[in-house]
Amino acid sequence: SKIRITWGDKTWEWDGDDEEVWKRILEWARNLGDEELWRHVKEWVDK
């Protein structure tokens, strides 16, 4: 399956939905430097 994140007018996609993928997404969000996006992603990961 895919994980799709839409933020503003951008959309990103990742293949898979296991823990490793979420770790990569969390790292990606942090590297993007958008605090609010990172917080949202972290909330999803922690669920």
Score class of each variant (00 low, 15 high):
E43A: 11
H40E: 13
W14N: 01
W7D: 02
E19V: 12
A29L: 03
S1Y: 08
E36W: 08
T11Q: 09
E20A: 09
E19H: 14
I5K: 00
D15Y: 09
D18A: 11
E19G: 11
V45Q: 09
L37Q: 02
L26V: 08
K10T: 13
G16D: 08
A29V: 05
L32I: 14
R4P: 01
D15N: 12
L26A: 05
E13I: 07
L32Y: 15
K10I: 11
V41K: 00
N31Y: 10
D34Q: 03
E43S: 11
V21R: 02
S1W: 04
R4F: 11
H40K: 14
W22K: 10
A29W: 02
E27A: 09
D9P: 03
I5R: 00
R30L: 13
E27M: 04
E27P: 00
D18N: 15
V41D: 00
K47R: 09
L37S: 01
W12T: 06
K47V: 11
W22M: 07
V45K: 10
W14P: 01
W7P: 00
D34H: 04
T6H: 10
W44D: 00
G8N: 12
W22R: 07
T6C: 09
D46T: 10
W7C: 03
D15C: 04
L37K: 01
W38P: 02
I25P: 00
E19W: 08
G16V: 10
E13D: 08
G8I: 06
G16Y: 15
D46A: 10
I3Q: 03
D9A: 02
L26W: 05
D17H: 10
E35M: 05
E43H: 12
E19A: 13
E13C: 03
K23W: 09
W22D: 02
V21E: 03
L37H: 02
T11W: 11
R24H: 11
E20P: 04
K2M: 06
E36H: 10
I25R: 00
H40V: 09
W44I: 15
W7I: 06
L26D: 02
I3S: 01
W22N: 04
A29T: 03
A29Y: 02
L37C: 04
E36G: 04
W28N: 00
I5G: 00
L32H: 15
T6R: 10
D15I: 11
V41H: 00
T6M: 10
G33I: 06
W14L: 04
E20H: 14
L32S: 15
